[in-house]
Simulated assay, not measured.
Amino acid sequence: MKWPRDRGTDVSALKIKTCFFEKDPSVSLYRRAFAEVAGTLLLVFCVVSAGIAIQRVTSSHVATLAVLALVTGGALCGLVVAFGDASGGHFNPLITVLQWISGDRDIRCTMAYVIGQCAGGVVGALLANVLLAGERPATYPPTDVLHLMAAEAVTTAGLMIVIFGCMRGQRVMTGPFAVAAWLTAALLAFPACYMNPAIALSATWAAGVVALPVSRALLLILAQIAGAAGALAVISIAYPRAKPAEPDSQVAEA
């Protein structure tokens, strides 16, 4: 059976226009993964830089939350619009892995994206530390771990529902703005949430108010995975996948 050279996204192969899938999956995987590296790097750089900068000009907790929420939502929206056609504009391993679980992305592409996202995030955090001469906090504020993990799971589930709802509802251009709106609202309501394993991992290298100890980052990532699993169940009910059409005789030729 003859298949396209790179079947990174079955949805693109079926020529269904939707967000969070690359426009042309036949483009080299290295180029598409590079877009994920660059996008995640810039996203984390903006978030960490904003945290360091706002901490230097004000001690207001409300101002800090507002700035981080707006910076995160705005940066992500712009980066998804900029890189969406190239790679799908994920910048979040949970999106990539859920696409793989759903059968929309192969394992090679999934691994390249996830590794690139995590590496890009760490470099973005270190770059912000160097350019703004940020320092990691000596101590971290005490937090109720169970409540923190519950909030992380709920906000992550909401983010994945927004993303996959836009994707399966074929909302081509509304996805980035819907995601930015959810992130801004969620971060204002639950400011300790990260909703992204790449950012949580990067925060263990970051300075300023977004920094995390490794133990807390690992707990947040576990909560994010749980939230993503719950979101996939909700989306599977709300948007059941149609059975794939039988390939025509030309595609099915050996």
Rank of each mutant, 00 (worst) to 15 (best):
M1H: 11
P4Y: 11
P4H: 12
R5K: 14
R5W: 14
R5N: 15
R7P: 14
G8W: 04
A13E: 15
I16A: 03
I16V: 13
K17P: 00
T18Q: 10
K23G: 08
K23D: 15
S28P: 01
L29D: 03
Y30P: 02
A35R: 06
E36P: 00
V37L: 15
V37G: 08
L42T: 07
L43I: 03
V47Y: 00
V48W: 00
S49M: 06
A53V: 14
T58L: 11
S60P: 10
H61W: 12
A63C: 14
V67A: 11
V67I: 07
A69I: 04
L70H: 09
L70E: 03
V71E: 10
T72W: 00
C77T: 11
C77F: 07
G78S: 06
A82E: 02
D85W: 10
D85T: 09
G89W: 06
G89C: 07
F91P: 08
N92P: 11
P93I: 01
P93L: 03
P93K: 02
L94M: 13
I95D: 04
T96G: 05
L98A: 12
Q99W: 04
I101G: 01
G103V: 00
D104H: 15
R105Y: 07
R105L: 15
R105M: 15
M111E: 03
M111Q: 05
A119I: 13
G120C: 02
G120D: 00
V122L: 11
V123T: 08
V123Q: 01
A125N: 05
L126T: 05
L127W: 11
N129D: 09
V130D: 09
L131H: 12
G134L: 11
P137Y: 05
P141C: 04
P141T: 05
D144S: 15
L146I: 08
H147G: 15
L148T: 09
M149N: 05
M149F: 02
A151N: 09
V154L: 15
T155F: 11
A157S: 10
L159N: 02
M160C: 05
I163C: 09
M167N: 12
G169R: 03
Q170E: 08
P176T: 11
P176S: 10
A178P: 06
A180P: 02
A180I: 01
A181C: 13
A181Y: 06
A181V: 14
L183Q: 06
L187Y: 13
L188F: 10
L188G: 14
A189Y: 14
A203W: 00
A207R: 06
A207G: 12
P213Q: 07
S215L: 13
R216W: 06
A217L: 08
I221D: 00
L222Q: 03
Q224V: 03
G227C: 12
A228Y: 04
A228T: 02
G230R: 05
A231L: 06
L232G: 09
V234Q: 08
S236K: 14
I237V: 13
A238T: 01
Y239V: 04
P240F: 08
K243H: 08
Q250Y: 08
A254P: 04
